[in-house]
Design a protein around this nucleic acid. Sequence first.
RNA 1: GCGCGGGUGGUGGAACUGGUAUACACGACAGACUUAAAAUCUGUUGCUCAUAGGGCUUGCGGGUUCGAGUCCCGCCCCGCGCACCA
Length: 819
Amino acid sequence: MNKYDPKQIEPKWQAIWEESNIYKADLESKKEKFFGFGMFNYPSGAGIHVGHVRNYTIPDVITRFKRQQGFATYQPVGWDSFGLPAENYAIKTGVSPQESTQKAIEKYQQQYRAMGWGVDWTKEIDTTDPNYYRWTQWIFAKLFENGFAYQKESAQWWCDKCKTVLADEQVINGKCWRHEGADDPLVSKRNLKQWFFKITDYADAILEATDGLNWTSSVKASQKSWIGKSVGAEVVFAVDGNDKNIEVFTTRPDTLFGATFLVLAPEHELVKNITTKDQEDTVEDYVVKSVIKTEVERQEAKYKTGVFTGSYAINPLNNEKIPIWIADYVLTGYGTGAIMAVPAHDERDYEFAKKYNLPIVEVISGGDTSKQAYMGSGKLINSAEFDSLDSKQAIEKITKWLEDRKIGKQKTNYKMRDWLISRQRYWGAPIPIIHCEDDGAVLVPESDLPVLLPEIEEYKPTGGNVSVLAGVEDWVNVACPKCGKMSKRETDTMDGYVCSSWYFLRYLNPHDDNQAWSPEVAKKWFPVDFYNGGAHATAHLLYARFFMRFFHQLGLVDTPEPFGKMVYNGLIRAADGSAFSKTLGNGMDPLEVIESGYGADALRLYEMFAAPVEQDVLWDIKGVPAMHRFLGRVWTFVQEYLSTKKGETESIDGLKVLQTTHKTIKKVTQDIESDKYNTAIAACMEALNTYNKYILDFGIQQSPEWKFAVESLLQILAPFAPHITEELWQQLGNTSSIHVDTWPKYDPQMIKDDVVTIVIQVNGKLRGEFVIETGASQESLEKKAIELNNQNNYTKDLEIIKTIVVPNRLVNFVVKQAG
RNA sequence: GCGCGGGUGGUGGAACUGGUAUACACGACAGACUUAAAAUCUGUUGCUCAUAGGGCUUGCGGGUUCGAGUCCCGCCCCGCGCACCA
């Protein structure tokens, strides 16, 4: 074989690797472990596109690197296969989700194999496999037994296209995350009895741990902003002439003297109670209008609106009567659904006060409240005994003052709510609950798990408040596990996020029928060493962290965090900057690139070379042939080596070869360790360019120096281009794989250059240069520079006031500026 | 508005703790090979004035320094995330 032909070598090695099980993880290994992978994929009918290639090549590179370094590595593979697309497809075509999912997975398997990703196929998982979701149901049971799963009737987002409720975080700009298009409807709210997981119990623990994570900073930032912690105080306001109290939440107790009115959300339970007779009609009218408006319309409103209730509250600090209003800019779901309005120091209250002519009282100095609200901190004024304190002290003192009188207390609020997990859809894991008239919600006993999803004929959702499963009578009707009375199964299924919040643990025991995972194995393999994804995946990561903490509390895992290192990788976008999407159909199939003759290695290399990992890349097919050419040069280089005779290289030349090689190994090793794949590849290219120049200069022979150069180049390139390097490795006469235990070591002694170029500057401007032995003394540098200055007159007869000498770098003459 | 990231040649991008800006690659141009083309190989390639040789250049304006893409201050622009969260 004389020409580089990926079509020949890639399938060949893929078959050999699979047969020889080189990527099969030995979970019992005594070696140091490395567990690395990208977020598992949802297998859609379209297959993966070149954007996905980046997501899985990154962990493949790092895991291969570690495998070569001698780690026990595990790069798992699995499918996040429950979800609406398969169900919607079933509704349209009648093909069951079971069948279409299976087909999609087969296509993905083919693509993954063709890319040469070194995953362990013997431990493949699929969330729709009853042997998998049995354990999803088991986790539900654990949560239920420990009080972390509960049912509650509440108003929830409803997507009219999906015919199901959605979690808050699945609503994007007022639309369903699956239906974000211009023609798609806004979500609305429906009152339903739903299942929730109590993630809020862990809000603080998750938040606290976030800063310490070795994760991409933007991902950490969005974790924190979703939790949305704010510390403040709850303050009780008495209603004037009424025995009711109104509680408000504020982060600025220091501004309490500036509270000139209260505002309740229109849905607030006390609205009816405190509205006076003469305001009844106005208030009623406003409430009705607000409720009809969708939440989205309310949030998009340009101007604040509201009405006076007719009642007054007493500001507990100064006993002033302040009016109580209702307005829809106050949200019912956050805090207490009521606020104290401090127009002088809050933009929103300021706008409202201006509009309705409510008093604005400045209590914090530092701004100009005649022009705008001053939101900063400062010294208190108009605040009686608290005057002249600064905001920070005042917050403490006023909170204490309220606490002493039992009319307020310190309080922390979170934007994060409990996790709504029920879905009124078919294609999900059934919730293992039986509703009994006498015993209420009863868990399906563990011995009866899994609760199998029954096969059905008609997938179309009822459109009502229950899933199609409600119509499967012989499935729904079942005896109560407690009392035996005929009862009904829960017909909602679980949100797909439930399945994807623990899959990383199942990777360890995919075939175990007795447990979800083995705590002993998990102890060795967790946390995950490298995790990545092409999205911030805020919800997924929060849920996974919640589950892990819960398992940790039960003693089922050893670490409270699932992912040690997490990297957000940028997206591959279409040439016009738009994201690849199934609807646009603008994503290229990697198989197309491979079949065109460039090969998977070139595609992998291109995507790793194009930009730093965290940055977006515009897809440019021209980059692939460029990498193919480079690999062709590597091929030729090795052929050239093989075609020469055994011999010796002159020691002075051999040293050059060695130095280049050691330097390159060092650079590539360090770059891969710090996720700088683009410069690692550039270093390989540079090395090859240098070797080719050496060949022109002094030739190549099968000497120890050139052998080391050729072998090392293949070894350091192997994580990026596994097929060609394996092929050439074998051509060099090796019988075992290049991918196991082969990472070359560099000798620090060999990376030092003998000579170094020193730059001569005048006032920092480049004037000349000379070459001198590495490590030459400052005196000799200066002497040489002065000598050259005398010859070339860099300083133009100006007076030298100072000479800066930086060893191994430069000599800078500082001169008096002329004129 | 808040948070996170960014702005460097025609293009994607390099640059260690401040020390030769533009590595590597694409594209372009020229040459070799060829009847010719493709492929391959070699060379040139930031802009600019030009005679040796200068001048200018990392979004803009200042500052610190012998020396700034890198540090400090003030802006502008782009991407992503969050957003009436009190």
